[in-house]
């Protein structure tokens, strides 16, 4: 058994512990690090793949893009809801996936759900396609291309070797 099965999880769990307590006291830092060390150790079986972030800067830029998209797309969806519901053209889109790792696919599905106007509805059993429901997609292919370029490409760079 490795001492530190997931080196990334430890600081994240410690940071969450500090946020939960809203404190930076040395005692809490020590306890947070202890928890961050112990929890990955006991839950190692649930996380068979070791996560490695290859390009932290790309990840930061990806997060910024997602935050901006959440704000912009919320405005768009608000306008769509207030407009005429009859004018909407909802669509199911099949997004072919280039991502392979569980975490990256999970993050992509999560991002698609977070940016309003699209919900990821189903992952095909062989993980090659993601079925996405879009609230208003007059041009489905353009939306698929946007998802692949804006979200999938950075995730691929960050979590998987190119």
């Amino acid at each position: 058994m490795k001492r530190l099965p997931h080196p990334l999880l430890t600081p994240i769990l410690a940071a969450i512990w500090l946020l939960l307590n809203n404190s930076l006291a040395p005692g809490h830092i020590a306890l947070g690090l202890l928890l961050g060390w112990a929890i990955p150790l006991f839950t190692a079986r649930f996380w068979p793949q070791t996560v490695r972030i290859r390009k932290p800067l790309t990840l930061l830029r990806f997060l910024a893009v997602v935050l901006l998209d959440i704000v912009l797309a919320n405005l768009v969806v608000a306008r769509l809801i207030l407009g005429r519901p009859q004018a909407l053209c909802p669509a199911f889109l099949v997004v072919p996936l280039r991502l392979k790792s569980d975490l990256a696919i999970g993050l992509l599905a999560n991002t698609i759900c977070l940016t309003p106007g699209t919900v990821s509805a189903r992952l095909s059993p062989d993980r090659d396609f993601l079925l996405v429901h879009a609230l208003h997609a007059p041009d489905g292919d353009a939306l698929i291309a946007a998802i692949k370029q804006r979200y999938e490409a950075p995730l691929k760079e960050v979590f998987e070797a190119c």
Partner: peptide, 15 residues
């Protein structure tokens, strides 16, 4: 329909 309704409460609310 159900699928479009899903969009409102789950996500227009994130902002």
């Amino acid at each position: 329909d159900f699928y479009t309704r899903l969009h409102g409460p789950t996500k227009a609310t994130t902002l």
